[in-house]
Simulated scan of single mutants.
Amino acid sequence: MKNLSSNVTERTERRKGEEEQENTEERERLENNRFEDQDETTERARCEWDFHLRTVVSSATAASDALGVIEFGPSGELLATGGIARKIRIYRFSSLVAAASDADGGGGDVALLDHASAYDYYICTPAKLSSLRWRPGAGGRIIGSGDYDGVVTEYDLERRTPVFERDEHGGRRVWSVDYSHWEGCSVMAASGSDDGTMQMWDPRCDGGECVATVRPSATKTSSVCCVEFNPFGGPLVAVGCADRKAYGYDVRKLSDPVLILDGHQKTVTYVRFLDDRTMVSSGTDGCLKLWNIDDARAVRTYKGHVNNRSFVGLSVWRKGGLLGCGSENNQVFVYDKRWGEPIWVRGFEPTGESGCERGFVSSVCWRQVGEEDECTLVAGGSDGALQVFVGTRKPS
């Protein structure tokens, strides 16, 4: 009996030693794989695009003309800009590209244009503009704006006159305007304001009948800085707030948010849908965040640009998975959704005589239409300059 017990003990000890050896080998294998994966990730993180500056549109005057918003029309042909100059300028993208082609004699020259000759036409507005958005289903004819006086206005671009006005935010600045793309409420619009509310309204009604008012933050002084409906047609509307959070609401039941995205350390200035399952947010904590809509989980954080207090723009190119934003150090940043560091950075070259070294890139917009191997990013500066960048995918 003693010998049998001794044999059992010996076999048990041997088995434990073998298991420990196997565990050690497994840990070493996993560690090696981890470093191999890191090396592969570093290799893949290289920029797959060649970007170059195509056109610069600036002004010969020294008047302040900071651009706060840039929006491409549904077809990608018309480009609208707005800012503190109290004008909606409409450009034809084909004209900007043609000017660049004429200037390029084969040496990669950049077209230098003046706003007065570059835009197709402009519409004067009664106040400084903070937001522009093309109204779906209007054939590119109607554009909505939010201004510093707390008024939402729609303009008919063919007649170049206002056709709708809504003043329900108590005179507090409207930061953002958007329209629903969901069939269940395709005529609804929303605006976010310094009054701490997001209001949904019906633009078909005279004065815009209020459908619902949402106050995301318990703090009444917490501004709503951005609203965006799901552009893929779902019932979700996203809201970015000064309380450092972004919220998602189901438009069928707005009493409580269905998503609370908590991760920024300062004001959430922008929210953008990248696809039907992910969103990107921007904050004055100097980072962008990618969120999984299904579980409100932060997937990735993007850092590199400078953003401590200003609105510097955020746009996503959905077809290519690229993120664009401005920076308070007067640079344009492009991130690939797969990696947290920028893949391309370009500084705004001075275009005027005063204050250029203290300027910043204040707005960006990707052109959503086009080929998968070519993209266009338009950026605007606090000095009023508009710069067009074209990217082409590098050969594999």
Rank of each mutant, 00 (worst) to 15 (best):
residue 11 R to T: 04
residue 13 E to W: 07
residue 15 R to C: 02
residue 16 K to P: 00
residue 18 E to R: 15
residue 18 E to N: 12
residue 23 N to P: 01
residue 29 R to S: 07
residue 36 E to I: 13
residue 40 E to I: 15
residue 54 R to T: 11
residue 58 S to F: 07
residue 71 E to S: 09
residue 72 F to I: 05
residue 84 I to E: 14
residue 85 A to G: 02
residue 86 R to Q: 14
residue 86 R to I: 01
residue 90 I to K: 07
residue 98 A to C: 05
residue 99 A to E: 11
residue 115 H to K: 03
residue 118 A to Q: 02
residue 120 D to K: 08
residue 125 T to C: 07
residue 126 P to L: 03
residue 129 L to P: 02
residue 131 S to T: 12
residue 133 R to A: 12
residue 143 I to S: 08
residue 146 G to S: 07
residue 153 T to F: 01
residue 154 E to Q: 13
residue 154 E to N: 12
residue 174 V to M: 02
residue 181 H to I: 08
residue 184 G to I: 10
residue 185 C to D: 14
residue 186 S to L: 10
residue 187 V to M: 11
residue 190 A to N: 06
residue 193 S to V: 04
residue 196 G to S: 05
residue 198 M to F: 03
residue 202 D to M: 15
residue 205 C to P: 01
residue 207 G to Q: 13
residue 211 V to Y: 10
residue 212 A to I: 03
residue 213 T to H: 00
residue 227 V to T: 12
residue 229 F to D: 05
residue 234 G to R: 13
residue 236 L to V: 08
residue 236 L to H: 01
residue 238 A to W: 01
residue 243 D to R: 12
residue 244 R to C: 14
residue 246 A to P: 05
residue 248 G to V: 01
residue 259 L to G: 01
residue 264 H to F: 10
residue 266 K to T: 09
residue 267 T to D: 14
residue 270 Y to L: 00
residue 276 D to Y: 09
residue 280 V to G: 02
residue 281 S to N: 06
residue 281 S to C: 06
residue 281 S to L: 04
residue 285 D to A: 06
residue 289 K to T: 02
residue 291 W to H: 12
residue 294 D to K: 15
residue 295 D to T: 02
residue 297 R to F: 06
residue 299 V to D: 09
residue 304 G to Q: 10
residue 306 V to P: 00
residue 307 N to L: 13
residue 310 S to N: 15
residue 310 S to I: 07
residue 318 R to D: 03
residue 319 K to H: 08
residue 322 L to W: 10
residue 326 G to A: 14
residue 327 S to D: 06
residue 328 E to I: 07
residue 334 V to K: 10
residue 336 D to M: 06
residue 341 E to D: 10
residue 341 E to K: 12
residue 345 V to F: 00
residue 346 R to A: 15
residue 347 G to N: 05
residue 350 P to R: 10
residue 354 S to H: 15
residue 357 E to T: 11
residue 363 S to A: 15
residue 366 W to M: 02
residue 367 R to Q: 15
residue 376 T to H: 08
residue 379 A to N: 10
residue 381 G to P: 06
residue 382 S to Q: 06
residue 393 R to D: 06
residue 393 R to F: 07
